[in-house]
């Protein structure tokens, strides 16, 4: 019961803030609502017994990436952009595309609802202890992707420095 209340609360919060992210005129307000959406997602992760991912989402996404976003928004002075047209002429096409996409997935869910709604979930204990299990998979089965991800981060770091520095 509590599970479901928590899920629907966070789901509603995530969707409402996501809509506000793409509709707000002011980029800082968009960023604030994106933080809310990300934290709501973190709450859903917690509800799904993914404690480690919950805290990764909070530290990395909300506390790291979003601070970077807000930092850049404040660095690039947006006062001028605030009074310009915020949406381009494709908005109608975009709405149609995403509506079609949503309809497709809804249809897919409707077709397979018997299995989707009755599939028994694995016991919650199968994910515990969460941090240890994540670490085990990350450093045994997925150690090569892990190393590749580290190289990706290095490349991104070098790229960002080269891009943002005035004289290299």
């Amino acid at each position: 019961m509590l599970d479901q209340v928590v899920f629907y609360f966070f789901a509603a919060l995530a969707i409402v803030s996501a809509i506000l992210v793409v509709t707000r005129r002011n980029a800082v307000q968009s960023a604030i609502f994106l933080v809310t959406a990300l934290l709501a997602t973190a709450g859903i992760f917690l509800n799904l017994n993914a404690e480690f991912l919950f805290i990764v989402q909070v530290i990395l996404y909300a506390g790291g990436i979003m601070v970077l976003f807000i930092f850049v928004i404040m660095l690039v002075n947006l006062d001028v952009a605030l009074h310009q047209v915020q949406f381009n002429r494709q908005w109608f096409v975009a709405l149609i595309i995403s509506a079609v996409l949503a309809a497709q997935v809804a249809a897919a869910i409707a077709v397979s609802r018997r299995t989707l709604y009755t599939m028994p979930a694995a016991p919650a204990e199968s994910l515990q202890p969460n941090t240890e299990r994540v670490a085990f998979y990350l450093f045994h089965t997925y150690v090569l992707p892990f190393e590749i991800a580290s190289i990706l981060l290095l490349v991104a770091m070098v790229g960002a420095v080269v891009m943002a520095k005035k004289r290299v």
Binding site: V28, I32, V35, E51, F52, F54, I55, V58, I59, A62, G63, G64, M66, V67, I70, F71, M74, P129, N130, T131
Partner: peptide
């Protein structure tokens, strides 16, 4: 008592920066 206690403290306190940044903005 959380099994991710220390990370929880770190994560939540790292959100405090938003108060400062948004207040300044």
């Amino acid at each position: 008592e959380l099994n991710i206690g220390l990370l929880f403290i770190l994560g939540v306190s790292s959100l405090g920066i938003f108060g400062i940044v948004l207040g300044g903005w």
